[in-house]
Amino acid sequence: MMAVAQPTMPGESRWERVARFWRRAPNSFRIGAVVLLIHLFVAATGPFWAPYGLSQMGTGIPLAGMSWAHPFGVDQLGRDIFSRVVHGAHIVILLSLSGTFLGLVIGAVVGLISGYVGGWIDEILQRLIEALISIPFLVLALIAIAAAGPQLAGQPILIILVVALVYAPRIARMARAAAVDIATRDFVTVARLRGEGAWSVMRRELLPNASGVLLVEFALRAGYAPVLIGSLGFLGFGMRPPTPEWGLMISENRALLIVSPVTVLGPGLTLASLVVGLNLFTDGLARILGRTVRLADA
């Protein structure tokens, strides 16, 4: 069932309820939440305490390895990698979340309409969704960026739109499946027998019951968004230098791999830790909501 029965104990404050929820939550949820909170904290406050500036050069000997002063080393231009990773946190997180959210909204609306209204509208939307999913997502992202032209290249808005473009059809497919499933349940039939319109049924009956699916779907996609954005950056189609986007930094420093692997591993493992956190959080969330996560979806 979908509802998370969180029975209220009498005389319990909000904090006690949160504490009780926390104690009972699965381990994956708790670890994931902690990792995420650390990332969010760094993203929010990082620019104020990062040891060096975003593009500050000459902070140390270029290509120096790991040291206390430069935990992730120094790049070719003498910039401190650790500081750049810290400065980049909010960029990665904001781009991921807003792109995924936009994809979720578009996907959910299209999916619910397609699944509930049915008929030719459903058929057409389904074919369109299917066609968009058939283009490997990285390829779709790359041609969309190429098509956007030079004015938009490297702009955050382009990245957000591309993430949404890649995710919307995949989320729509999930939302449609959920809508079709829910629409066959008797309470929806009851609403139709009352004469409620499609919009009202979708808002009152479908959406609340699909929210669990959509929430997990959002978390799952958000977990992969940093990888997608990083891949684009890595291939040179994402953010432009000197933006401290982690994928881009890995690509820039790969030339130094033999001399100073830490310049690549620093941003790389930071990126991986964010994704691990998001995945653990999603896994825990799905367990709480009583579903199994379907992770593979190319």
Binding site: V227, G247, V264, L265, G268, L295
Partner: peptide
Amino acid sequence: TLILLSMPDFLLATVLMILFVI
């Protein structure tokens, strides 16, 4: 599997490269 799942493929490729090339 979770950790490997969370590694972007370009990072995994780079790590393998560090291990077996460097």
